[in-house]
Computed example of a mutant assay.
Amino acid sequence: MKAAATLNAPSRVERRTFQRVRVKIYGRFMLEDLSEHPCQVIDMSPGNVSFRCDRVGEPGEKVIAYIDHIGRVEGVMTRRLADGFAMTVIASERKRDKLAAQLTWLANKHELDLPEDRRHERVAPRNPLSVLQLMDGRQYQCRIIDLSLSGAAIEIDVRPAIGVQVVLGAMRGQVVRHFEDGIAIEFAVVQRPEMLDAEFNQQNA
């Protein structure tokens, strides 16, 4: 299985053509024993990624990572580092093109030191209790920490993967970030103030 997976990895020559981007983003990864561990990306290219973490597997082991702003990335561990490990990314050409675009955006964001999402003012709703629904119909009670015309941060017990489509109240969006007590959601479209006011700022009767 490991040998077959490695066939889809980029060759050494191909890997040299990928530009590594130094970023500080977080996520989690799963080893072949199905154990999950938190991690921080040190640098990344469409063909490779280096993680800082407490738990390290064995070279040649398959790894599945879920990285903030990036989403799911699969690969094979290539070597151990002093405080983590490096892995080769296994992806189609289309996936690598998408990774390159995401990494370019992240590099520019870090270079310009842009705030994470301050396009619109964030406020705390008067009625913070709401329901988050996944596309398969599952629903979870949640508490809105703050929201803006373009997204919301919510406290919730579950952690849908980055990129998963969700509905908060009546607002459709996707998960864009995890944090200690919940998740951040970006709405599919920028909302009108009166829509947010009607949805989240009415006191319960």
Rank of each mutant, 00 (worst) to 15 (best):
A3P: 01
A5I: 12
L7P: 00
N8P: 03
A9M: 03
R12M: 11
R12D: 15
V13D: 12
E14V: 11
T17L: 02
F18Y: 15
V21C: 06
R22N: 07
V23A: 05
G27Q: 03
F29P: 02
L31R: 12
L34W: 00
L34I: 08
S35I: 07
S35G: 08
P38T: 10
C39A: 15
V41I: 10
V41Y: 00
I42Q: 06
I42E: 07
D43V: 01
S45G: 06
P46C: 10
S50T: 14
F51R: 08
R52L: 10
C53S: 14
D54S: 15
D54G: 14
V56T: 07
P59R: 13
K62V: 14
A65S: 11
H69Y: 11
H69E: 08
G71M: 09
R72L: 10
V73P: 01
E74D: 15
E74I: 07
G75I: 06
R79Q: 08
F85I: 13
A86C: 13
M87N: 02
M87P: 03
M87C: 04
T88F: 01
E93F: 02
K95N: 07
K98Q: 06
L99C: 02
Q102S: 14
Q102W: 00
L103V: 02
W105R: 08
N108G: 15
N108R: 12
K109Y: 07
D117S: 14
R118K: 12
H120K: 03
E121N: 07
V123E: 12
V123M: 07
P125Y: 00
Q133L: 07
L134I: 01
M135G: 12
Q141I: 06
I144A: 15
D146W: 06
L147A: 08
L147V: 05
L147G: 06
L149K: 05
S150M: 05
A152Y: 01
A152Q: 02
A152T: 04
I154C: 05
E155N: 09
D157S: 15
D157N: 12
V158S: 00
V164D: 11
V164N: 09
Q165H: 15
V166W: 02
L168D: 04
G169A: 09
A170L: 12
R172T: 15
Q174M: 07
V176Q: 05
R177Q: 09
H178R: 09
D181S: 14
E186V: 06
F187Y: 14
A188I: 03
A188P: 04
V189S: 13
Q191C: 14
L196F: 03
F200R: 04
F200A: 08
Q202K: 06
N204P: 09
